[in-house]
């Protein structure tokens, strides 16, 4: 993890601040922490941390996103500016909507931008089904190549049936998320 101020040296100081239940977290290298007065008194810089974080977020958005800052999540209505102010996203869709400016932020926080851990059981089912469909599409193509049209028709029907099933499971949350006007 690199320092969120200079972006060069490894971060060795973690600064967490909670003000009125709003959490801000900063990773700093020793020098930048010292510059911020962190090693001297935590209270002294407490007030400046929020602006520091906002600064880091602003840098991320201006450099990589430009106009992303004015974008609004169509699912929950959160704007990127609101996220910058609060440090919290509004819903799962926000991750996709703000993917670009988030990328740098996630890289700063975690040193990575992609998940390597557990997959939820329901998701496992989805992924497996997706693989199955892909395999069947391959078989369909081969069948057509071989001019085995009867087999191709059978495969085509099975694929469309499975795709309907997939959509069916996706509708479970229907109506729960109402995009704000």
């Amino acid at each position: 993890m690199t320092c969120e101020i200079c972006g060069k040296k490894p971060a060795v100081v973690l600064f967490t601040q909670i003000v009125k239940n709003e959490k801000t977290v900063l990773h700093l290298c020793e020098e930048c922490a010292k510059e911020q007065g962190l090693s001297v008194s935590v209270e002294a810089i407490a007030s400046s941390v929020k602006s520091l974080l906002t600064g880091a977020l602003a840098a991320a958005s201006s450099e990589e996103a430009g106009d992303e800052a004015v974008r609004v999540c169509p699912s929950c209505g959160l704007s990127y500016a609101e996220f910058k102010a609060k440090g919290r996203l509004g819903c799962g869709a926000c991750y996709h909507v703000f993917a670009k400016p988030l990328e740098r932020l996630l890289k700063n926080i975690h040193g990575s931008t992609s998940h390597t851990g557990k997959v939820p059981t329901t998701q496992q089912a989805v992924a497996k089904r997706r693989q199955e469909i892909a395999a069947m599409r391959g078989a369909l193509k081969q069948a057509i190549g071989r001019e085995a049209f009867e087999e191709a028709a059978r495969l085509r029907d099975r694929i469309s049936a499975m795709e309907q099933k997939k959509q069916g499971s996706g509708v479970r949350g229907q109506g729960a998320v109402v995009p704000e006007p």
Binding site: M1, L106, I109, H110, G111, S112, T113, S114, T116
Partner: peptide, 8 residues
Amino acid sequence: QVTLGRNE
């Protein structure tokens, strides 16, 4: 601290 890019 890290939750992304490192598995459980």
